[in-house]
């Protein structure tokens, strides 16, 4: 996929989350956004997913401009999947229904097809036995895997993952990263904001470092992480990999 952000500004009240951000990536199948907390990587991800509109600037994914027009953003949203840091499953629905309901209501599958599809995804993520449990009865890692299943269920063009492991302990982080890795192996196109440098290097083909609302560095994953070209990138990576 081809991603292009041109002079993107995103302002939340007084706070400027993105300050004239420019990124152009000609071809990537798994992009990792890394950088310090509050630096703008989650905001970038949300703009790319179409969840929010930029204050100004243009955002293009492949040939589509999705920035300012609400109708275009909503159309784009239906073709992508989003996974959040805090899972955001619907607490009043069980795991199976959390996955099947959007298939049925948004993507107009029949009810039976939706359930079959949801069941096969739960099977794939080793959650089949938990299908009738409510999110409150599942662990964080299980919740997040259900959320990933929900995001990929409609076969989206791109899956966006917003710090999917930041709320999890190391063991659960591993199980969720395994699930994400299986998406990479299945040739899903992913954009992931993450603090897991090792994972970014291993799974992503392209890495963009975003700090202070601007792009610090972008390029081939192992190149950027192993031999960063800028002082700011070196600083951030040294701090991240120190311990």
């Amino acid at each position: 996929m081809r991603l292009e952000l041109k002079s993107v500004v995103k302002q939340y009240g007084q706070q400027r989350a993105l300050d004239n951000l420019n990124i152009a990536i000609l071809d990537t199948s798994c992009l990792a956004l890394i950088g310090p907390s509050g630096g703008g990587k989650s905001t970038t991800l949300r703009l790319l997913a179409g969840l929010e509109a930029p204050t100004s600037g243009s955002i293009r994914i492949n040939e589509n401009e999705i920035g300012s027009d609400a109708a275009k953003r909503n159309a784009h949203l239906k073709n992508v999947g989003v996974v959040f840091q805090s899972y955001n499953l619907f607490p009043h629905l069980n795991a199976l229904t959390n996955i099947a309901l959007p298939l049925e209501k948004v993507h107009r599958h029949s009810k039976a097809d939706s359930i079959t599809k949801a069941e096969s995804l739960l099977q794939q993520f080793q959650l089949f036995e938990h299908r009738f449990k409510m999110p409150s009865q599942l662990s964080g890692g299980q919740n997040q895997r259900v959320a990933i299943a929900r995001a990929i269920a409609p076969d989206p063009d791109i899956v966006f993952l917003d710090e999917p492991t930041s709320a999890l302990d190391p063991e659960m982080t591993a199980e969720v990263l395994d699930a994400i890795e299986s998406l990479v192996e299945a040739k899903k196109r992913l954009v992931i904001a993450t603090h897991q440098m090792g994972f970014a290097k291993q799974a992503a083909d392209t890495v963009a470092i975003i700090a202070g609302g601007k792009l610090v560095e972008v390029g081939d994953a192992s190149q950027v992480i192993d031999q960063p070209g800028t002082e700011r990138a070196r600083e951030f990576l040294n701090a991240s990999l120190k311990f």
Binding site: L51, G81, V82, P102, V106, R150
Partner: peptide, 15 residues
Amino acid sequence: SQLLSAKAIGFSEYQ
């Protein structure tokens, strides 16, 4: 967060 999630899924306002 649930409203955001509903938006991400593609639910309309009514849905």
